[in-house]
């Protein structure tokens, strides 16, 4: 196209793209995320009640439930089921701890062919890594703030 037309079209193009872009259906996505994410929470609650009925103290029961849910997330990832559910659930499968397991197990599986050191070992946290870095960093900061607040407000 000629220079003048090119300049004109490049300016108009953003509007053309915005007008043409198909949008995700936010309502549909939210309903799926709510229902499937809620089901995952129900499963977590079920295990919590189960462990409590075994007489596990309330302070510790969270660790037990987290362990089971991480296992389930990892297991379903290994079976190739988790991503098929996530296609519909979106945030509903990413936000719960099962999604965290999926984000670690899926690269571990994917990069196994590059070996256990430079493949699995190096790439395992390629998605979860940032979550860990900023999660741990922010918990340290919050901890320091908490310490001073407690120190001064007695």
């Amino acid at each position: 196209m000629e220079k003048k037309l090119e300049k004109q079209l490049s300016e108009e193009f953003k509007n053309m793209v915005d007008k043409n872009n198909p949008q995700s259906s936010i309502i549909k996505d939210c309903i799926f995320a709510f229902v499937i994410g809620g089901l995952i929470c129900d499963i977590g609650q079920f295990f919590m009640n189960l462990f409590l009925s075994f007489g596990i103290p309330e302070d510790n029961v969270g660790f037990y439930v987290a362990t089971v849910m991480v296992f389930l997330g990892a297991f379903l990832t290994g079976l190739g089921i988790y991503d098929n559910v996530a296609k519909y659930a979106g945030a509903g499968t990413i936000v719960p701890i099962t999604g965290f397991a999926n984000s670690i197990v899926s690269p571990a599986m994917e990069f196994k062919r590059e070996g256990y050191i430079l493949g699995v070992g190096a790439r395992m946290f390629i998605i979860a890594g940032p979550v860990l870095v900023y999660g741990i960093s922010s918990s340290v900061i919050v901890g320091i703030i908490y310490y001073f607040i407690k120190y001064f407000v007695k």
Partner: peptide, 17 residues
């Protein structure tokens, strides 16, 4: 996918575009 995007089994959503 593994070079440009995510591992195959990663549970993400693809936008309509």
């Amino acid at each position: 996918e593994r070079q440009y995007r995510f591992p195959l089994e990663y549970g993400g959503q693809r936008p309509p575009t």
